[in-house]
Design a protein around this nucleic acid. Structure first.
Lengths: 240, 240
DNA sequence: AAAATAGTGTCTTTGAGACATTATGAC
DNA sequence: GTCATAATGTCTCAAAGACACTATTTT
């Protein structure tokens, strides 16, 4: 039997397959606090519970899993070119009462000023939920609480040797503000000097010439030269 | 409608879903060369082509995706407790001619002495394929060539700041041998002194007191104290 | 002794961490 | 001026890199 014959006779419905979904940990800084975007489900399972943004892959609309993540992110936030990265895929027979299901988890770091929240049909609400100690106030639907905390751990780790957190910043920001975001993600203070050295060495920041006065001495205001993420060969704040 | 009612009426077959598979990049060092385990397909699509170890998740046998990876690995190699880690999940509508499909890719680093190759029913053969410049000699089935190269890139990166490569070693080995494996994975020479310093500092190696003479002066023979992977806060061989 | 591989000593370099010092604008 | 926050100077420390040197065995 040749390949063409095989494919014409292939009945893909005869095997039972897991459900495949996408979930996105959409993070933003609001009032210097870390927040994750959550939606309230208006259907079972977990009716009325809050959950991460996500849902089934639509094999008509989505050419790839990542497309699916982009689509869902766009539908909720209006963002077209976010920083989006895959975290991991979790699949098992007990995370969803409807049966065997797998979800591919992405994370997006966004500037919340650029966001226009818009709830979907199957949701009764959408909101930013503050993240404290790697958790939201309320337990999330499915295994989303665990997905969130694992994802935050990955981000914490990357924060130590990359410029990932820059994607959370507004267009213009000061080094103090950026440092505060690093410290939020790492849940740890870092030394000003090391931080300045590293950020300026990255050659990622453009001094706008402006000053921002939020206390006493006004701080230099920077903007990103581009949206790349720099990698360093040593960790910051890693006094283990 | 309450949750119980909803679930009793839920018909999971009414949505069309992607196929979900697992693929495993099983790596071993043979004769100081990096090899990946490959199987020859004896059914379309890609009949007779070589591919990574993998296949459909069996929702009867596998409680989780990782279980599925362990099962396939065990079926082919007889290994029960390998070093196994998730790389990424790739899903799209063109990687498999049978339709929309997703695969979760894992990688396993194994000691090839512990392996007992055993081919599956749907395979006409199984073999170690040498990896040169991130590729096997022949192009692999599906997108497996790309999955392999991406996976090797991830491993190369981790090699710079972890003791990951130790999982490829036989029970007893010398520092020169381990260093050669590092250099194979990184495709780069590293300096002996830095390497010795770091490995001894990791406190992962037990000097067996034995010597191995493979040239002139016999080298100390070490074994691993345990199977943990150490993380360092600086990269080795990172003169970018 | 010569050769070859194993392993060390030590200096340089890089960049993090500590911490004192200076800079700047609001009041 | 004082105060608070911004930013820098400079020293220490940890570990990578360079490379010369010593050590141990075979031949």
């Amino acid at each position: 039997m040749n390949e063409k014959n095989f494919l014409s006779k292939y009945d893909s419905s005869k095997y039972s397959r897991p459900n495949l979904t996408v979930d996105i940990v959409i993070l933003a800084i609001i009032d210097n606090k870390l927040n994750v975007l959550t939606v309230q489900r208006n259907e079972p399972p977990y009716q009325n519970k809050w959950a991460l943004v996500g849902g089934f892959i639509d094999i008509e609309k989505d050419k790839t899993i990542e497309d699916s993540a982009h689509r869902k992110l766009f539908e909720k936030t209006g963002l077209k070119t976010p920083y989006l990265e895959q975290f991991e895929t979790i699949g098992n027979n007990n995370r969803d009462p409807r049966g065997w299901s797998a979800t591919t988890v992405y994370y997006a770091l966004v500037d919340h000023n650029k966001i226009n929240l818009k709830k979907g049909k199957s949701e009764s609400n959408i909101k930013w939920s503050p993240v404290i100690n790697g958790k939201t106030n309320q337990k999330l639907a499915f295994d989303h609480t665990k997905l969130l905390s694992g994802c935050l751990e990955r981000i914490r780790s990357k924060t130590m040797y990359t410029t990932l957190p820059t994607h959370l910043m507004p267009e213009k920001f000061t080094l103090s503000e950026l440092k505060a975001v690093y410290e939020t993600l790492m849940e740890k203070k870092i030394t000003t000097k090391s931080f300045h050295r590293r950020m300026l060495a990255s050659n990622l920041l453009q001094d706008t010439g402006e000053r921002k006065t939020s206390g006493r001495r006004p701080a230099r205001v920077y903007q990103l030269k581009d949206n790349t993420t720099c990698y360093f060969s040593r960790n910051i704040g890693d006094t283990t």
